[in-house]
């Protein structure tokens, strides 16, 4: 079978769906899985209520409950923490042979020329990249900072939803509720946080080292299949 381009036929630019398929597919899958989590979460919550001889909750009530909110936000915060640490960490930290890492000699924030900033900005560069004031400083860290802000917001949301869900459970066990500051020191808050953090850190560590030796043909997360194990910062 021929795989070459047909002579004389112009290649059409990919349409909206094709151009944004990565975001759209993962965004759609996120919504489907979130809905599935709500269904499973409600069933589990109602099982606990049945054991206590209490009223079952409907699907709408569960969606608005602190129990659902804390289960969602505890995972969100850890994902944003992962990307925040990864984005900032990979400025200075390197892994020889990993496509997730820069070449070892380029560790650090690099020069304005390398980063196409200030006088080295190009006509197509984002406008703030070509400035020399606070806008450049902010824009040049905007990805990591946004991840950090989203992490702190979702971690705060976890704490607020968490104290309400935990206090509901304590009341069902005939225990006095805790206030927010006491909840921040509780085992429930830290258990929820740390169990998610450890899994995110394991995933980053595994990706950094496994991508040195293993390949995925066609994926930009992998080196080209034939690249040497020692090749660093090469994407497929």
């Amino acid at each position: 079978m021929s795989s070459g381009r047909v002579p004389g036929r112009r290649t059409r630019a990919p349409g909206f769906w094709r151009s944004n398929s990565l975001t759209l597919v993962f965004g759609g899958a996120f919504l489907v899985v979130l809905a599935a989590q709500a269904v499973a979460g409600r069933a589990e919550f109602n099982e606990q209520l049945a054991v206590d001889g209490l009223q079952q909750v409907g699907f709408g009530a569960y969606l608005m409950s602190s129990d659902f909110a804390v289960d969602v936000t505890e995972n969100w915060q850890s994902e944003f923490l992962q990307f925040f640490l990864y984005v900032f960490g990979t400025v200075h930290l390197v892994q020889r042979g990993s496509p997730e890492s820069k070449p070892l000699e380029r560790a650090g924030t690099e020069s304005d020329r390398d980063q196409k900033m200030g006088d080295h900005a190009r006509p197509e560069s984002p406008r703030w990249a070509g400035t020399k004031d606070w806008r450049q400083g902010l824009y040049s860290r905007s990805l990591g900072l946004t991840m950090a802000v989203l992490f702190f917001l979702s971690w705060f949301a976890q704490s607020v939803a968490g104290v309400a869900a935990y206090n509901g459970q304590r009341l069902r066990q005939l225990q006095a509720p805790l206030d927010w500051s006491a909840y921040l020191a509780s085992s429930d808050f830290w258990s929820r946080s740390l169990q998610n953090w450890q899994s995110e850190l394991l995933a980053v560590c595994a990706m950094a080292i496994l991508s040195v030796y293993l390949r995925q043909r066609g994926s930009p997360e992998s080196k080209p299949v034939g690249s040497a194990h020692s090749a660093t910062g090469v994407e497929g």
């Binding site: 909750v57 409950s65 129990d67 309400a164 869900a165 206090n167 509901g168 009341l171 006095a176 509720p177």
Partner: peptide, 17 residues
Amino acid sequence: DVYGNDALLRTAGDTVF
């Protein structure tokens, strides 16, 4: 104190869940 569908009511003489 009310959390979700659970509450604790404190009065001068008793505490009720």
